[in-house]
Design a protein around this nucleic acid. Structure first.
Length: 272
DNA sequence: AGGCAGGTTCTTA
DNA sequence: TAAGAACCTGCC
């Protein structure tokens, strides 16, 4: 099917923004894998895109995934060029980034894995886990088999040794424990959608292998709470270099997480 | 060859 | 409560 998008939307920027690990350039378009769904999407020009899914699947899944009901143009308009020149430049540069609505379970495991790893290494580990514990759902535009992200039950069938075999290193035991917690019902990620930000943070920090950075990534990308502001080494460099008087968190509330994405993407692309 | 990568836990004071 | 060390693995 073909859709037309008026708001900010840039496939390459979304793929490179660091919020998703299964969204990659593929043939003459991009492949996106989320949970047990695969999408091939190709830009046609003039805001038009060709999608490999049915209209029904778009309406019921991908439309939400791409957060089509939120205007990122309006969020960018909160930035005042004269007041915050660096963020303004970053937002112009990053125009097209959106915060995807991804699954809390998939994001939790992905960001536990992410610690002290670079993005290619994170992606490689996740693909190994999917191939080992998920199931085949499609063949992508380059002819490669595509595997679903394993459900908690599927992932719980892997031993710590098998997880370790996915290049998780010392994170193997974190992933294993999180999986057991979810499968046992001790952790109910779905019900956490109802609790407030502070309570959610406390719940996440109680998980083995989850600290402040990973928890904030889960809150922003897994629960789509756009005010969460993960601080990694890149963001800390930006805050130190560009915001000695402090970032204007009060001004951008409740969209600080979107601003974080612009800062992250800009700093990574420019070494600033 | 040694250091570091989108951190967190464990140990020590 | 707060620093500092240890941690898997892969890639410069």
């Amino acid at each position: 099917m073909i859709i037309e998008i008026k708001d900010d939307f840039d496939l390459q920027k979304i793929a490179d923004s660091g919020q998703c690990f299964r969204f990659n350039k593929c043939a003459d378009g991009y492949s996106a894998v989320a949970e047990d769904k695969y999408l091939f999407i190709k830009e046609l020009g003039e805001g038009k895109y060709e999608l490999s899914c049915s209209e029904d699947e778009y309406e019921n899944f991908w439309k939400q995934y791409f957060d089509m009901d939120t205007s990122y143009r309006d969020i960018r308009a909160l930035i005042d060029e004269s007041e915050d020149e660096y963020l303004y430049r970053a937002s112009e540069f990053g125009q097209g980034i959106r915060i995807l609505r991804q699954d809390p379970w998939e994001m939790l495991i992905s960001f536990i894995i992410s610690q002290r790893k670079n993005i290619p290494a994170i992606k490689a580990s996740i693909e190994k886990i999917c191939a080992l514990a998920g199931h085949k759902i499609a063949v992508d535009a380059e002819g490669n088999d595509v595997y679903s992200f394993p459900t908690p039950e599927e992932l719980s069938k892997l031993t710590v040794a098998q997880l370790s075999g996915c290049s998780l290193g010392y994170r193997d035991k974190y992933v294993h424990q999180a999986t057991l917690d979810v499968v046992s019902g001790a952790v109910d990620l779905e019900s956490w959608k109802e609790i407030d930000d502070d309570a959610l943070m406390q719940k996440l920090l109680a998980l083995y292998g989850v600290g402040v950075k990973v928890a904030n990534c889960e809150i922003l990308f897994g629960y789509h709470r756009l005010d969460a502001f993960p601080k990694d080494v890149w963001i800390n460099k930006v805050l130190d270099a560009q915001y000695p008087q402090g970032f204007l968190f009060g001004k951008y509330k409740p969209y600080n997480g979107v601003m974080q994405q612009y800062l992250f993407f800009y700093s990574r692309s420019n070494g600033l």
